[in-house]
Design a protein around this nucleic acid. Structure first.
Lengths: 217, 217
DNA sequence: TCAATTATTATACAGCTGTATAATTAAATC
DNA sequence: GATTTAATTATACAGCTGTATAATAATTGA
């Protein structure tokens, strides 16, 4: 009946006994990250977070002080996750051609990123958000991609005269677009946009796009 | 002092005299479209809309019935605008090569679309929104792009074996990405992302991306 | 052992937001 | 010219949301 295995019995007020203790702070953080990843920052609702974490509203204040505090903590947690994912995905082997590097990068994307898709969705929400923290997080992301493109560059594969900054942004559009308009993609395909074979087709297509464009063979 | 030329003197209740009549319905609609384009649907606030249109809150109900009614009317107005823009931008001349068509299309984008950038921002908000109307609007947009790609196809320029659906989506990512993460782009460039020369650089870069990829020369 | 601290729920509250209704004034209609 | 209708502001209200405070129960530590 109930979709989750959450207990419906109300917990009494007061510190729980040692043997039935849980990490409610972590539960709250995870709930917040999931809700933000799916619904964005605007629609984040503390009562919903508490419900999803199966704790009372008051604990949000206890552990995070305020809504802003919870968002901050979520941002930091996600930034750590993203950094560790990209450390793997954007690894560059200077001996290979840019085409090969891109090919490898996209393969790693499929393997490494999509089990952790929620962090990518969250990154998308950061990208379309306007506050200071979102700006800082996005800058970190931008610089990571920039670094990747520049290291490709060292292999002398990127044509001169191409606008580097826009190349980086286009890469970002292709990465974040799918997580941002996930719902519409699923509607049009008639299937969940993040099923493995669909991701595979998309990332393969992206790789070709990067190496040879939409039109050329 | 006041950024707009809006009168600060309060209007009295009651129907205005014929000589001082205005189209308040249109004012409300325009205010709503602007606010949605900049802030999305989630943060749409009827009192803000009324303030921006320089009318009282009650008029929203009078003309549009409810918040949903106002959104609906905005959606319809924007869909009409977008359709008329795309009728021009996606015109195809079957005698030219796909490369040439894309080149022309991007030139038209610069000229036709960016004076009407707000409708594009609104389209972006529709794309990341989840309700039924947004879904329908996005489908219309998707089919317009699809139609363009298919007509390019008739000129026999698109390589076989390339996944058509993802090609369409990638085109969409490149079009909507910039309006969705406008703020971050402006932050990183240190300038407004929609100044003419910046748009020109971006669209040029997009055109090259479409015709020959990010890496090849 | 008993006071302080920690983990937890419960309740209260004030501000914002969409909606509903009333009041006001001018035009339109008959 | 009287009544209805249209355009407009004003006021009221209920529900939601973040925040604040109080209450409760267990652990920790002096």
């Amino acid at each position: 009946m109930s979709q989750d295995s959450k207990s419906n019995d109300i917990r009494p007020a007061g510190r729980p006994k040692a043997n039935e203790r849980a990490n409610r702070e972590a539960d709250l953080l995870e709930a917040a990250i999931n809700l933000i990843a799916d619904g964005g920052f605007e629609s984040l609702n503390l009562r919903q977070v508490a419900l999803r974490a199966d704790v009372s509203l008051g604990l949000v204040r206890h552990y995070f002080g305020s809504k802003a505090g919870l968002k901050s903590a979520s941002n930091k947690a996600v930034q750590r996750e993203i950094a560790s994912i990209f450390a793997v995905v954007f690894e560059v082997n200077a001996l290979e051609s840019a085409d090969q590097q891109v090919e490898k990068m996209t393969q790693r994307l499929i393997v490494e990123v999509y089990p952790k898709i929620k962090y990518f969705k969250y990154l998308g929400q950061l990208a379309i958000s306007n506050d200071k923290e979102a700006k800082d997080s996005f800058e970190v992301y931008f610089n990571t991609v920039k670094n990747f493109v520049e290291r490709l560059d060292v292999t002398q594969q990127l044509p001169d005269g191409r606008d580097r900054t826009w190349a980086i942004f286009q890469f970002i559009f292709l990465q974040l677009g799918p997580v941002l308009i996930e719902q519409q993609i699923s509607n049009i395909l008639g299937r969940d946009a993040f099923e493995t074979d669909i991701i595979r087709a998309r990332v393969t297509s992206m790789s070709r796009m990067l190496t040879s464009g939409l039109l050329s063979a």
